[in-house]
Amino acid sequence: MTTTQQGEPLLVRDARKRFGDVEALAGASLEVRRGELVGLLGPNGAGKTTMIRAIAGRVALDSGSIQLFGRTVTARDPRPEIGVVPQELAVYSLLTARENLEAFGVLYGVQGAELKSRVDWALEWSDLKDRAKESVKRFSGGMKRRLNIAIGLMHSPAIVLLDEPTVGVDPQSRERIYEMLASLQASGVGVVLTTHHLEEAERRCERIVIIDHGRIVAAGTLGELLAAARSGGRTLAMVLERAWPAGIAVPKGFSLSADRLTVTVAVEDGGRGVAARIDTVTGLGARVQDLSLAGASLQDVFIGLTGRELRE
């Protein structure tokens, strides 16, 4: 409904927010354009949720600004242009899907014939039409997730903020959710999502924003990020015979898988670099069973920029 408005849908400038001793946002900036799907990535505690909550008006910034379609908003200002989909399943489980959509629709200002039309659209869009009259508590996790997203769209927002929309759902449902988001994009809605699935961000997001310690450390398309992080580099993965020796630290620049059986490291200088890195690993007592050389991924970019795995 607000896609015809003038100005950038969302512009966050130099956002700062401190909770006691913790600086959750330390001058973060973000921009979302019409019909764009932006992935906001960052390790736990990086500031993703604070950023989302600040945009939604649930966190008052200490300094910095948020503009919606050129209009600067403060924490208390209403923002009907925004739809928020929390990570939690924020639905009433004793109500049916239709009743949930109707209730939240009314609370978000949709009434009369428009309400009925939006509920029908939401049920169709989320593929829940056949289960519309069923109590939500009987729904599968994926169905609840889809309803959770549909509720956030009842008032036809121009920007949708989704916090981990695919967490805990099976691959099939995840695929369905991304199809839903793609259709939103096609209608000109700007979408910001946080996710822990890097491969999803790689595949689905037009732009990726990496946040760490409250700062935006990188932003751009996947290609731009890869190019900026490592020009033409490769990733060497070494599969070990046994788990990485306990008590021995992994060398700087190397990263160890959770099962401690695979070590990965960036290689920029071809064959000589590979041999030197294998020597480093074997010199510390590990025995390499197999190895592979691949192009850089978002994971490499992420680790390179933050020094951490996404789930750390």
């Binding site: 928020v84 924020a90 939240f104 609370l107």
Partner: peptide, 14 residues
Amino acid sequence: EESGTLDRLIGSRA
């Protein structure tokens, strides 16, 4: 509050 519904309600016109 625990289910996140309260956030959604507070964010509404109510």
